[in-house]
């Protein structure tokens, strides 16, 4: 059965259905509906909802709940995510699974509350200090947002790597019909023998990201990077739309990805052979399929709500085999399909 839900609400409901029972937050626009939904619904499922004194506290509560073995989540928007970055680095270092939702708004600084994609670097290149990665999933519809939240919990538990949902204000605020995924059963959550449950009949468990010995710490990080390589091999996700005969392919994710879908349709109506490549995992980035595409498509036009962040990964993947122009908007301005189409027409003619 389909229900009409806001992106923010659908992500909250999906988290509950994924077995998230500990949620910690600090209010910020434009993700307020996620917080409100959790406040109303999570306690009814026997879960913990706690409004923390700051984003810093909230992410450290997530660290604690994750260490205790719970499926746990926090959500925020860009400035709040910056504050959470310290804790996210610790989660990554201590190999704790957790889900962080970033409903992006325009920055830097206080910026504004309009949708933007300026946190791509922060999400995919580390964000906090040290050598680590996050699994980063970028939904482009409310339906996909719900599904990717469920997936984020699974991947995070499987690899013991924190996962981030990189959404934006538009996706968080908009309503769409959504077919909610079935709730998981508690036995579907993998066992966590490393969790802090009390050292009864076993040696004590320690959850830590600390090791003073560089050689030992190097081995810990090498093992971690082995996991990252495994994730890169197994978990790359993307979508291609009308790329088969395309002379130009738009590369866009999230909200920009769906807007570009409209651009493709309009272009096709006008006889222009345009397609769309939409990364779903931003890390691991779908470099290989993009490289494949660059062998037969002369122009890969990256479109972002930023000054060009994912664009760097696109160029790294393409390595000069195709033209890689960029079109972006800043400050929370969302380009309309017509505006993007005019840009497309600079490169292809019907």
């Amino acid at each position: 059965m389909k229900v009409l839900m806001r992106g923010n609400e659908a992500m909250a409901e999906a988290a509950i259905r994924a077995g998230c029972r500990c949620y910690f937050c600090y209010p910020i626009t434009p993700q307020g509906e996620l917080v409100e939904y959790m406040a109303r619904h999570l306690p009814r499922h026997g879960g913990v909802f706690l409004q923390a004194e700051s984003e810093v506290a909230a992410i450290n509560m997530v660290y604690g709940a994750a260490a205790a073995g719970a499926r746990t989540m926090t959500s925020s928007s860009s400035p709040g995510i910056s504050l959470k970055m310290e804790g996210i680095s610790y989660l990554a270092g201590a190999r704790l699974p957790a889900v962080i939702v970033n409903v992006m708004r325009a920055g830097p600084g206080l910026g504004n509350i309009a949708p933007a994609q300026g946190d791509y670097f922060q999400a995919t290149k580390g964000g906090g200090h040290g050598d680590y990665r996050l699994i980063v999933l970028a939904p482009s519809t409310v339906q996909e947002a719900a599904e990717l939240v469920m997936l984020a919990f699974d991947l995070s538990d499987r690899y013991r790597v924190p996962a981030m949902i990189l959404a934006d204000g538009m996706l968080g605020q908009m309503m769409e019909p959504v077919e909610l995924p079935e709730p998981i059963l508690p036995q579907m959550i993998p066992p966590k023998p490393w969790a802090l449950t009390g050292a009864k009949d076993r040696a004590p468990n320690v959850v830590s990201s600390f090791d003073l010995d560089p050689y030992r710490f190097r081995e810990i990080l090498r093992a971690l990077w082995e996991i990252y390589r495994e994730i890169e091999r197994n978990e790359v996700r993307w979508e291609e739309y009308e790329t088969g005969d395309a002379e130009l392919v738009l590369v866009a994710y999230g909200t920009m990805g769906r807007i570009c879908r409209t651009v493709v349709r309009q272009a096709r109506r006008e006889g222009l052979r345009v397609g769309l490549f939409r990364p779903i995992t931003l890390w691991p980035f779908p470099s290989e399929p993009l490289r494949e595409l660059s062998h037969r498509v002369p122009v890969l036009l990256t479109v972002e709500l930023s000054a060009g962040q994912m664009w760097e990964d696109v160029r790294l993947a393409v390595e000069g085999r195709a033209k890689t122009p960029f079109y972006g908007e800043l400050g929370g301005v969302v380009p309309t399909p017509d505006e993007i189409l005019s840009e497309v027409k600079r490169y292809v003619r019907g």
Binding site: C22, F24, L50, A52, V56, A57, A58, N60, M61, V62, Y63, G64, A65, A66, A67, A68, T72, E86, G87, Y90, A94, L196, T197, G198, A199, P204, N205, V206, V207, S208, S209, F210
Partner: peptide
């Protein structure tokens, strides 16, 4: 059992 907390965050980690 023990958790190592970030500087200053012990009470938040304990809460979690």
């Amino acid at each position: 059992d023990f958790a190592q907390a970030a500087h200053g965050r012990a009470c938040a980690v304990a809460t979690g």
